[in-house]
Design a protein around this nucleic acid. Sequence first.
DNA 1: TATGAGCTTTCAGGTTATTGTCAGGATAAG
DNA 2: CTTATCCTGACAATAACCTGAAAGCTCATA
Lengths: 219, 219
Amino acid sequence: MRLLLLEDANDLGEVIHDQMIDEGHAVDWVETIAQAKAALAGTEYDLILLDLMLPDGHGIDLLKTLRHDGDDTAVIILTARDQISDRIQGLNAGADDYLVKPFDLSELSARVAAVARRYAGNPNPTIKLADLTVDLNTHQVTRAGADIQLTAREWALLEAFLHRPGLLLSKSQLEDHLYAFGAEIESNTIEVYISRLRKKLGKDLIETVRGFGYRIKQT
Amino acid sequence: MRLLLLEDANDLGEVIHDQMIDEGHAVDWVETIAQAKAALAGTEYDLILLDLMLPDGHGIDLLKTLRHDGDDTAVIILTARDQISDRIQGLNAGADDYLVKPFDLSELSARVAAVARRYAGNPNPTIKLADLTVDLNTHQVTRAGADIQLTAREWALLEAFLHRPGLLLSKSQLEDHLYAFGAEIESNTIEVYISRLRKKLGKDLIETVRGFGYRIKQT
DNA sequence: TATGAGCTTTCAGGTTATTGTCAGGATAAG
DNA sequence: CTTATCCTGACAATAACCTGAAAGCTCATA
């Protein structure tokens, strides 16, 4: 998915940027209204993340202009807790959703996904993998019709593979996906969770590539 | 159908106005309470769209006055997420339905149609859920024929799940539905209400998905 | 403006499921 | 055979969840 991240003068941008890239989105990151306008003129985006920390309501103006020009690109507003008026203005100006700082990256990811799905007109996307059906929305996994209950970590691990099917993922990559940046895992946690997933999903779904990592079996 | 749209100082009104006209309704669009009162004095409307972005709770007052005078015109309240108290007040004051921004126009259309049906004396749209019957218009819930009384919060919570069956909703999403987005809920309120709903609706209706949230059991 | 009923929110303690770690066994590579 | 790597059952610590009860609100009514 193609994202535009408009953010000025604070480090949240970098974090968001990295997270979105991790999830396989194409992200343009700009820090001024002028840059944003240039970017918008040239390119079609699927989603715009608009940080209203921007001074003087210019962010709102940008959004209004966009809508006025008939552009219906999805927009999620990021705003500080105390800027309620900005938020209301934002919604009125045509934003699709908003997040109040501070927020979890996972929360942001979920909202991005939700808005994207809404725009794609595809509210309940499911992925089929061998005899598995994975519902990204409800986190429901069924195997040959039978429900499978996954814990949070198990789901996160499975999700890592779903983003890029067939991809070989190293243990450290998987750790990055499962844990907050900088968290130190000092045991064979990934191995344990691979094991647990296999037990629930079926032995032969996840392939071990000795010395490198794991990969979902292609079908 | 004859609509009154009461909305002040923002561009959503225009959008709604155009949409409703498109759908073949007759719409009067006013932007002050005074205008609304004048319009209400002169004309019979089938439905009033009331935007609570209006300051000072005068919108609620208008509704109260209306009901107090025995006017039972259908009223749908449009409100920002920040104004939960308005929302509760609105329901208590006799609103028929409410929508929280941002909302899809299609959703608004659906609700308008629903309320219209109700007032046209058509059978109420109901949802069956296990042994429950849920009336979206009257907010009545019956179980095996017996009425179940839900409070405003309890209903709001149930409603969140009705929107799409089987949907997994996180606690923070539910909070967003019940409260101002970003409002500081520092306790386990959602858990408490889930507990109450279960007690009233039956233990096994709402499923806990540990680490993610809750979901209504698929039937 | 006081009162009381009903609803909402918080708190605290108990219960349960998940998590990260370890240890010992299994497997593949050389 | 030896070694590095991986698998997996078990377990204590912890996080997540449930729920009764009490405190806090709101609103209609007197």
